[in-house]
Design a protein around this nucleic acid. Structure first.
Length: 484
DNA sequence: TTTTGAGTTGTTCGA
DNA sequence: GTCGAACAACTCAAA
């Protein structure tokens, strides 16, 4: 193609920031006066490329983004291949004079972006990067001693005190200057991000609306009601008091600054109560905290932060892992969670802790195996959150739950799903069982089981292990690990 | 430098 | 049924 000679051309390299609103890279590229060309590059062979559920989401998010850009008369160029090389060749093709992006924080990404920037600058291409994805970047908040925070509460206090790095969101561009000639773009369908045979994403599609509009609707709906019940309600998987913004945040369809401001504005206006709102924002801060940890510990997804766990005697239990993955452990709350994940691409936070505790401490399977499964099946899979959270449950992370804190799946079920409705929704075999027995069907009298059409070991598994014994075994191994 | 207080989300046991 | 202690000390952050 011929180069855009009249006006300089700027590429905006979109990554985990698939939005138009409050997108500093996109805004500043437009503001520079250049003709702007947004581009997304799918690098399927990069480490930590999106898992299956994320690929489904990505498809719809890109579709939504390209429609929104089209409304503002901007294209979205899609390319597939190794990120840096693909971007470089697009620059060569188009004669772009500048590239804009929002920064990433995983050390491998930081390095990649840094070396790409050096290459481009050496060729005379301008590179402009921004903070679009965090309230405060990892180097922005420090302890008084100058280090990074390793405990959440002081981090959260520092973040509250400092506030977001930017006062106002980047303005949304309503009308783009369209390049006279466009470079080739892949067809989204050719990327085959969606499952076909079988199409396992039907239920996922029925509960989620990927894209910027869906993200804002989630936020507004949440702030219009559930947020006032968030402090306690967030622990109830049978109810709907969480924001469900996680996948939207993972793909950058909404910025944390937007969430922060919209929430705070409603508190200041007296529309919502400060209690639930602060608790909600503290969860947004956990996302930042995890991102900080990953920035400072590039091996967070691979190796335990606390070194006494390096030689922990994990079990190699293929069968146990399989039962866990498929929701066939015989512990209803665990199975419900794993099936919710499989069916909807998401799991309630309380249940994530329960299933993770079960895999790590009852089955003694390494936390990395759980991390991998979540990476593949979660629509909100995020490298930092996933790694930090699995390490947190395992007791080997920063500010982690102590290892001896081992969730009892029956106690947790009865406490947080008191009527058993969450279990019944996802473990349909137990749908007719009374609340009294639904979290521990093996305790039910034979008559009750018969009436509910449950035959343990046939229609629903017997527990694959005894929690009491498993707990003692875990504590014993932990004691040995510590003794070194 | 040393001291001090604090640290997301639990469970079990025995008095 | 309820309550405190044990689980395990350790690391972090600030004064």
């Amino acid at each position: 193609m011929t180069k855009n000679t009249h006006r300089s051309l700027a590429l905006v390299w979109l990554r985990n920031d698939l939005r138009i609103a409050d997108n500093p890279a996109l805004f500043h590229a437009c503001k520079s006066g250049a003709v702007v060309l947004p581009v997304y590059i799918l690098d399927e062979h990069a480490p930590h490329a999106p898992g299956a559920a994320s690929r489904w989401w990505l498809h719809h998010s890109l579709k939504s983004l390209s429609e929104m850009l089209a409304e503002a008369s901007a294209p979205l160029i899609l390319r597939r291949g190794p990120s840096a090389e693909t971007l470089q060749s697009l620059i060569a093709e188009t004669g772009a004079e500048a590239v804009y992006w929002n920064r990433r924080y995983y050390p491998a990404h930081v390095e990649a972006d840094k070396s790409l920037k050096a290459d481009l600058v050496a060729k005379g291409v301008g590179v402009h990067s921004y903070n679009g994805n965090l309230l405060r970047e990892p180097w922005d908040l420090q302890t008084k001693a100058g280090g990074h925070f390793k405990v959440f509460t002081p981090f959260w206090r520092a973040l509250q005190k400092a506030g977001p790095a930017r006062d106002t969101p980047a303005p949304t561009i309503q009308k783009f200057k369209r390049p006279k000639q466009l470079p080739d773009t892949d067809a989204l369908a050719d990327w085959r991000l969606q499952p076909t045979a079988p199409n396992w994403a039907k239920e996922i599609a029925s509960v989620w609306s990927p894209g910027e509009h869906g993200a804002h609707k989630r936020l507004y709906d949440f702030l219009a009601g559930a947020v006032d019940h968030y402090t306690d309600g967030r622990d109830r998987p049978d109810q709907d008091f969480t924001s469900r913004l996680s996948p939207h945040l993972a793909f950058g369809e909404i910025s944390p600054l937007t969430i922060w401001r919209e929430t705070r504005q409603r508190v200041d206006a007296g529309i919502i109560s400060p209690g639930g709102a602060e608790k909600f924002l503290s969860e947004i801060a956990w996302r930042e905290f995890s991102c900080n940890l990953l920035f400072h510990h590039g091996d967070l997804p691979d190796a335990p932060l606390r070194k006494e766990f390096a030689d922990f005697a994990w079990r190699d239990d293929t069968e146990g892992l399989r039962a866990w993955q498929h929701g066939l452990t015989g512990y209803p709350i665990v199975d419900a969670g794993m099936r919710q994940l499989w069916r909807t691409g998401w799991m309630h936070n309380r249940v994530r802790m329960i299933v993770a505790s079960f895999l790590i401490k009852d089955l003694l399977v390494p936390w990395q195996a759980g991390q991998s499964w979540f990476w593949e099946t979660l629509v909100d899979a995020d490298l930092a959150n996933n790694a930090a959270s699995w390490q947190w449950v395992a007791g080997c992370g920063a500010d982690a739950s102590p290892f001896f804190r081992i969730f009892n799946p029956v106690t947790q079920g009865r406490k947080f799903d008191p009527d058993g409705n969450y279990v019944r929704e996802f473990v349909t075999e137990l749908a007719a069982l009374p609340a009294k027995y639904v979290h521990a069907p093996w305790e039910a009298p034979e008559r009750a089981l018969q009436q509910a059409g449950v035959s343990l070991g046939k229609t629903y598994p017997m527990p694959i292990l005894d929690h009491g014994e498993a707990r003692r075994r875990a504590l014993d191994r932990y004691a040995k690990a510590k003794a070194g």
